[in-house]
Every structure is written in C-alpha cells, then in structure tokens.
Amino acid sequence: MSRIARRFAKLSAEGRAGLVTFITAGDPDLSVSAEILAGLPKAGADLIELGMPFSDPMADGPSIEAAGHRALKAGTTLRRVLAMAAGFRKGDTETPLILMGYFNPIYSYGVERFAVDAVSAGVDGVIVVDLPPEVDAELRVPAVVAGLEVIRLATPTTDSVRLPRVLDGAGGFLYYVAIAGVTGTKRAAIGDIAAAVARLKASTALPIAVGFGIRDPESAAAVARYADASVVGSAIVDRIAHGLDETGKPGPALIGDVLSFVASLAAGVRGARVQAAQ
C-alpha cells in the first residue's frame, strides 16, 4: 500500500477527514521553508503539498504567484525542491508528500529523471496543473513506472461526460477544485461542495480532497464534514507573506505563526465530524 493510501486508511479508521497543507518550496527562502515543512506534521498536517515554483503560474491567484516569485528570487530550483523533499523525508517516514506545480520545469529537468529522482527523494505523488488527462501520459507513464502517483484534478466544469476521462488513470486521491477560478480568490457554497463530493464518490473509490477557497478553521471544518480531506494553500502562504519585514526578510515570529495557524486548521478539521454529530 502506498504512503498516500495508508494515510487515508488511517484517517478513515479514525473517523475523520485529513488536512492537506500547501506551501511553496523556497518561500520565503530555502532554509525557512524547510523548517516550516519539517514542522507541518506536528502542527497537524496529514498530507503535504509542496509547490514547485514557476515563473508563470496561470491557475494561481496573487498569493501563490507572489510566493513563487519569492522562492525563485531566493534561488529555488527544481533540484533544490527535490533536495528539500529528501531532507523532510529523513525526519518523517509517514506523512505523504506531494509536489505540485506546472509542467515546464519538469519537462526542462527531464520527465523520466524527475520521476525517478522524486521517488528517491521520498515524494509520493505529483499534481501538475497544466497537464489535463488528454496530455498527461508523457508524465504519467514514467511516473507510474517509477512509483510516483499522478493526482488528477476535477473542477465544477468537469461534467459527467468528462469525469470518466479524469478518473481513468487517476492515482492517490482526487483533488476537487471547488470553484471555477484561480487559487485564493472566490469561495464555494458548502452545499455545492457537498453535492460535488457526493457526485464524485458515486464514480470513484479514490479519496476526495477539496481545495480552493478554504481560508480558516471554520471553512476547513465545513468541508471536512463531506470530503476526505480539506486543502489549504493561499491562506497559509498569506501567513508567510505577513511574517516578512519591509525588506522581505522573515521576521522572528514567522515560522511559529505559520505553524500555529496550521494547528488551528487541524483542530477545525479534526473536530468537524464530532461537532457535526453532536
């Protein structure tokens, strides 16, 4: 059983949904980012998405775009992202680590080499925003050979005609993008999310993680009542941005502040179904 499958099995045994946290590798710099990453499991992250920064993040809003630019300015490269993943894995053998980003840096690195190096760095899965099912074979095939799970995205525009295409070949879990929009902007109505999760559950046995527009413990908890996991990205990245001084340097409270925010999200997610049952 893969690390991702084991983690969802454990969550299911505990009768709760998971918290998936996103940070961009190298934001605001490589060492602070590595420290945040190392602290995430203890703060309550059940799965971790680690963003691979890209100069032109077309599906992201201003928060994650700015995080990517900070990371690139700090000298982050795909090779360094993989090194960071390997460093994380030395201290944590159980928390699934998923790389998320855009195709060009991977294509430039070499797709097969990326898949092999990611697996040996202890990475479990990859989400590539600009590789829809129609074109993802060029990554998916070498990834599957190397043992890297390719996680697919479903969105409000993925209708019932299209859904089988998205599910065919999907690995790890299904990431439901709750809004038609970019990260960190709109919020979906919880009723719409519940209906979408139910629709997806009827078509797949994969766990469903829901992201986009989840910004605080309350919204993370609301989603956790229906989905297998709540994904929070922009709101965490905003905390990082908030902890920078006027020259862009990380202030002394940054890491602690980010991790305590994650802990509050985790408390929301963990209490969600208990609260709902009462």
Partner: peptide, 20 residues
C-alpha cells in the same frame, strides 16, 4: 486530432479550462 504539429502544440491547460 490532439492539436500537435509534430512535437509541438497540444492542450496544456488547467482542467477548469479543458471543457471550454
């Protein structure tokens, strides 16, 4: 049919845009 000229072209867009 998939929009390729040899190696080039294709449809490298987010899933949200794919149906459009």
């Amino acid at each position: 049919e998939e929009g390729y000229f040899g190696l080039y072209g294709g449809r490298y867009v987010a899933e949200t845009l794919m149906p459009l």
